[in-house]
Design a protein around this nucleic acid. Structure first.
Length: 1126
RNA sequence: GGGCUUGUAGCUCAGGUGGUUAGAGCGCUACACUGAUAAUGUAGAGGUCCGUGGUUCGAGUCCACGCAAGCCCA
């Protein structure tokens, strides 16, 4: 029986399926975890995917990347628990459900109850779980799919509530507001998703004003600021300039009132405000009403020179006046000179940038107090000015006798076009126009014009949106900024730049985490408030909620628990039905918001174990994560939320090592999309190529943090080049091992030191490989590891070791040398199965099982083995250097033989090669592998030419890195001098160790170590050179060499014949050859023994006539030959 | 608009701290091998190192400004 199964063809997808089956039947994954019970843990966190869509090829990438390090660490002896998880909340689910039901958000609670809606979400979100599980299994991603965490489960939510309560207790959870897109017509905030709907941004013409802000303490001097939303001007509380932009002070006249003035604006924007034709006009010649208005620059400065300047409130409404530092100039990093004046007016309530800048500068915004004492903007949620502004505007209309399409009272001033007035009326004037006229009349407007720009509109009402402050709950992440920054510096990011750059910058510019979402399907915010907001309760657990409910029921504010007689579902609408009671007996209602789904996933280290309510021990042993991996697009998503929660509540990082992988693009570098039809179906790909080649390709082709241009040709190449070569090497081994009935026995193997030099070499190479793979994997660099394994397998093991050792396998009976060859090859193959098992888990296990089928101490799976560490004592650097020399010399000789002028094929033996050697070490290294070189390139001897030969031509070059430091600018003189050297100078520096060189009028001493001496020429010989190694080939063909060449040719032809005849390796033959010219006959006669041995010929006769002979083409002549089976 | 990443042969990618002639695989061309054979080997051709400036004796490598592609944010 064959001990090692041989394979004609390999079906990689089939290997994947059968090994998967084997793992399942034998519970291998589970065993790989349980057998490490008690060992040190290596913790991995699974970033939960959402199963409401089918998985794509990029998920193969992401999941493979997660898998490999877990497998590697398992081999290294760690216990690696991997709990799967599902992300189930969030907008995409809601949108999908709404699309399927044909409803909008407005219909929820009307056409469909919240209860039904959420039930539908719950169903939808796990719809493709089976596909996901299937893919996960088929690509060999080992993760616990039987007991995953699911973010909608009550236990999970309870853990979130606990965390939120912890934040609340630390005073890190607060209610504030943020500037968001808001639709007054629809009465709702809009998500960025809604704003990105096609057709949302439309070109509209708005009245734009360049307003004049009068400086305090400077006569007639105004800062010009431009806005396309004049209605925000009454809310102005500061002006922003670009710190490094150039500004000018211009003496001129107001174009509406003709009053003399000084205007301050960006120098680059002057052309937009001043007609160059007026540049030469004298200021004193100007008369009111002139078309051209003269101007003159009187001062220039940088933006930073303007900082802190105070100006007068534009609309002097007493109720809206603000204390210093309001109405001053500040820096805005977003200020440009693309349009406007290069100075931006800031209204805290109506712009996100404005809000941020003013908060940073501690400048208050323009707000008034409502009845409850809350600050509210001067425009209400219907888009109408409060009467405090309306009264002012109405009065000004009277004062300036401004007529319009109707009489304006204090409550008639709507911003934008939120009235339903007839805009086609000739007298129609909107609030922006009225404001413009007032400012013009009051010498406060420098320019008013219609301006066309792109502005977002509400997709439901078609009306323009308003940027408006909306209430939100926040986590005060800014309070922990320094801590989060410091903790981040301890994290090992791959690539590093994502940690320092993208993530680091994000932390540096941290804003408070806006936690609120006005939605239905998500984790409810566990905060109950009295209606006046004076009393709040933040609930941190189910029992706590239960206790509060009991109190509320006892107090009579709630009739009964919404979950009475049912399982507790902590979602809406049930939680909304919970009314608690305050200390004063008032009703408390839940804040209606849900929380950001990113909090769900960022809390997974705790919530996946239902911490702290259960599993505290497991949590302690598995926190923080040693390793996580996710797409780089998660930087501000999952990576951040993990980091923030860990830093704020646990004073720890959440993960120590992280790979942020790039995107998977199509082969042309375009994004894959189902619509474009360039998406790769992972299931189809797996079916065609199997999981191993796919995984290997993705890891080895490019660093995972770079984008991958996915090309199926690349998978094919990996399969052929790496897997094919490895398979061939195994087949070669199996073929001969079976013939010789060799079976590897660990306990009876020949010590490496007693094996052939070639064996020692490949084993040394193998150990170096193990060290390299270990180093790469410990540094989370899978690409380096896979490439190293591939190079070893293809270049060193197959192409060099097997090729050179081939004859040892097929020659003769079993002996010690043959056994050593088998053992060496076997050990290499077996090591490769372990090295590659993390990356190609199926094939590696399959090969492992083939190799160990007859071995007594084999384990069930390569994935259950212990990592075989480097045996440093087996690494022989000197030998590796020697062999490298042999490979390079062989290559040079091949190159010489192929030279057009030489053209002698390898089968023709040649007498000698000559190698100049300038030092003993080189000579020793080459001599070591002399035999090998001789047989590889078919020459009789290697001759070394050293100094004493007298024919060596030496060559000197400057050692630039050394000389550069010493000489600097004088380099070029010295380099030129060295290049002009002859043998004499080289001899001098070699003998005396130094030489004087002229350089730009002075003499410089050069030391021997500052030049590199080599030999690249042997006079009279054609040579080939490669990195200081030079080889000359003696191409003289003697009679004897010619004869041997013919003999080898004949052997070659007879071998072909044997094969054509279908003879087995061990079959014997008789050979008859027709008489030829003398040289050929002599060759056959002199090399008869050689020919017979090689061809297994019992007899070899030369005859005048050969009956039934075949004419063999011997290149230069034909030979009559007849081969018969003995 | 801002932050970050990428750009090297037809394609996919390597190229510590600047240093002599910029490499590999695939593909292409030619050849060899024919006892690993639907396998394998060898050699060759192929480069504006995205562009422009700069620093330097010397730049694929460092700096500045651009260009192109991508991601995230506004």
């Amino acid at each position: 029986m064959k001990k090692y199964q041989e394979f004609k063809q390999v079906d990689y997808p089939q290997i994947g399926e059968s090994i998967l089956q084997y793992w399942k039947e034998n519970d291998i994954f589970n065993k790989s975890v349980t057998q490490r019970q008690g060992a040190e843990t290596f913790t991995f966190f699974e970033g939960p995917p959402s199963a409401n869509g089918t998985p794509g090829i990029h998920h193969v990438m992401a999941r493979t990347l997660k898998d490999i390090f877990c497998r590697y660490k398992t081999l290294k002896g760690f216990q690696v628990k991997r709990k799967g998880g599902w992300d189930t909340h969030g907008l995409p689910v809601e949108l999908q459900v709404e699309k399927e039901l044909g409803i909008t958000k407005e219909d929820i609670g009307k056409k469909i109850t919240v209860e039904e809606y959420n039930r539908k979400c719950r169903e939808t979100v796990m719809r493709f779980k089976n596909e996901w599980d299937d893919l996960t299994e088929k690509i060999g991603y080992w993760v616990d799919l039987d007991d995953p965490y699911i973010t909608f489960e009550a236990n999970y939510i309870e853990s979130l509530w606990y965390l939120l309560q912890q934040l609340y207790k630390k005073d890190l959870l607060y209610k504030g507001y943020t500037i968001q897109p808001y639709s007054p017509a629809a009465g709702t905030g809009l998500s960025s998703h809604e704003l990105n709907q096609p057709g949302c941004y439309r070109d509209v013409k708005d009245t734009s004003i360049t307003a004049q802000f009068k400086l305090k303490n400077q006569e007639n001097t105004y800062i010009l600021a431009w806005t396309t939303t004049p209605w925000t001007l009454p809310s102005n509380s500061a002006l922003a300039v670009g710190e490094n932009l150039d500004y000018v002070k211009v003496q001129t006249f107001n174009p509406y009132t003709f009053e003399p003035m000084f205007a301050i604006l960006a120098k680059a924007r002057m052309s937009a405000y001043f007609n160059p034709k007026a540049a030469d006009l004298a200021l004193e010649d100007f008369k009111g009403g002139d078309k051209l208005i003269p101007y003159q620059i009187v001062e220039e400065f940088k933006g930073k020179d303007l900082l802190g300047l105070e100006y007068e409130q534009l609309f002097p409404i007493a109720e809206l006046n603000l204390p210093y530092p309001a109405f001053t100039v500040v820096v805005g990093d977003y200020v440009t000179t693309e349009d406007g004046t290069g100075i931006v007016h800031l209204a805290k309530a109506f712009g996100a940038d404005d809000f941020r800048t003013l908060v940073q500068n501690n400048i208050p915004g323009v707000f008034v107090k409502d009845e409850a004492g809350n600050e509210i903007p001067v425009v209400d949620k219907q888009g109408k000015f409060l009467s405090v502004v309306g009264t002012y505007l109405a009065a000004k209309m009277k004062e300036h006798a401004i007529s319009a399409h109707k009489e304006f009272g204090p409550d008639d001033f709507f911003v934008k076009n939120y009235t339903n007035d007839d805009e086609s009326n000739k007298e129609y004037k909107n609030t922006d126009v009225i404001i413009s006229i007032i400012l013009k009349n009051e010498n406060k407007a420098f320019k008013v014009e219609k301006y066309e720009h792109s502005y977002p509109h509400c997709w439901r009402t078609d009306k323009p949106i308003l940027y408006y402050p909306l209430e939100s709950w926040f986590i005060k992440t800014t309070a922990y900024k320094d801590k989060l920054v410091a903790l981040n510096k301890t994290i090992n990011w791959k690539p590093e730049a994502t940690g320092t750059g993208r993530f680091g910058n994000w932390l540096e510019n941290l804003v408070d985490w806006n936690l609120s979402r006005s939605r239905f399907w998500g984790t409810p915010l566990p905060i109950w408030r009295t209606e006046d907001g004076l009393e709040e309760k933040c609930i941190g657990s189910v029992p706590e909620l239960q206790a509060e409910m009991d109190k509320a029921i006892a107090a009579g504010v709630m009739e009964k628990s919404p979950w009475e007689g049912k399982e507790m579902d902590l979602h809406r609408p049930y939680v909304d039905d919970v009314v608690l009671v305050s200390s004063t007996g008032e009703k408390m209602f839940r804040e209606p918001d849900l929380i950001d789904v990113w909090f769900d996933s960022g809390a997974m280290p705790y919530a996946q174990w239902h911490y702290p309510f259960e599993n505290q021990d497991i949590f302690q042993a598995n926190y923080p994560a040693d390793y996580i991996a996710e797409g780089v697009d998660q930087t501000r998503g999952w990576f951040f939320t993990l980091h923030a929660i860990a830093g704020m509540l646990f004073d720890s990082v959440a993960f120590k090592n992280v790979i942020a992988n790039g995107l998977v693009l199509d082969k042309n570098g375009n994004k894959m999309s189902k619509r474009l039809g360039n998406a790769i179906d992972p299931f189809k790909t797996l079916k065609e190529y199997g999981p191993d080649a796919l995984r290997w390709y993705m890891l080895s082709n490019a660093n995972p943090w770079d984008n991958l241009k996915f090309n199926l040709d690349g998978v094919v190449e990996v399969q052929r080049r790496f897997f094919g070569t490895l398979q061939n090497t195994y087949n070669f081994f199996a073929l001969y091992a079976n013939l010789d009935a060799f079976v590897y026995d660990t306990n009876a193997s020949i010590p490496v030191a007693k094996r052939a030099e070639l064996d020692q070499w490949i084993i040394s190479k193998l150990q170096s490989l193990i060290a390299e793979v270990e180093g790469a994997m410990d540094n989370y660099d899978a690409t380096k590891a896979t490439r190293a394994i591939m190079n070893f397998t293809v270049d060193h093991l197959s192409n060099w070791y097997v090729r050179l050792a081939r004859k040892r396998f097929w020659r003769g009976e079993m002996n010690e040398d043959k056994q050593a060859a088998y053992e060496t090859l076997y050990e290499c193959l077996l090591s490769i199965t372990q090295l590659m098992s993390s990356f190609a888990p199926f094939y590696a296990d399959w090969l492992y099982k083939n190799l160990t089928a007859s071995t007594s101490d084999a384990l069930e799976s390569v994935h259950l083995t212990d990592w075989k560490s480097v045996a440093s004592d087996l690494i022989d650097q000197e030998l590796e250097a020697s062999m490298d020399m042999a490979q390079r010399i062989s290559s040079l000789v091949h190159s010489l033989r192929k030279n057009k002028d030489i053209g002698i094929k390898v089968r023709q033996p040649l007498q000698r090669i000559m190698i100049p050697v300038l030092n003993e070490q080189t000579k020793r290294q080459i001599m070591h592998v002399e035999e090998l070189i001789k047989s590889e390139v078919n020459i009789k001897m290697v001759e070394y030419i050293d100094d004493t030969s007298g024919i060596l031509v030496k060559n000197a070059k400057p050692n630039l890195p050394v000389l550069g430091k010493k000489l600097g600018p004088k380099m070029r003189f010295v380099v030129a001098a060295i290049k002009s050297w002859g043998q004499e100078e080289i001899n001098t520096i070699e003998k005396q160790g130094k030489i004087m060189v002229p350089a730009d009028g002075e003499e410089i001493e050069l030391l021997l170590e500052e030049v590199l001496i080599s030999s690249e020429d042997i006079p009279g010989w054609s040579v080939a050179t490669d990195e200081g190694l030079t080889v000359a080939l003696d191409i003289t063909l003697t009679e004897e060499l010619k004869q041997e060449g013919i003999a080898r040719d004949l052997v070659n032809r007879v071998q072909n014949l044997r094969k054509d005849m279908g003879l087995e390796v061990q079959d014997k033959v008789h050979i008859q050859v027709g008489k030829q010219e003398a040289l050929t006959d002599a060759a056959i006669q002199n090399f008869a023994g050689y020919i017979q041995t090689e061809t297994q010929a019992l007899t070899l006769e030369v005859r005048d006539q050969v009956e039934g002979a075949i004419a063999l083409d011997m290149d230069d002549f034909e030979l009559q030959v007849k081969v018969t089976k003995a």
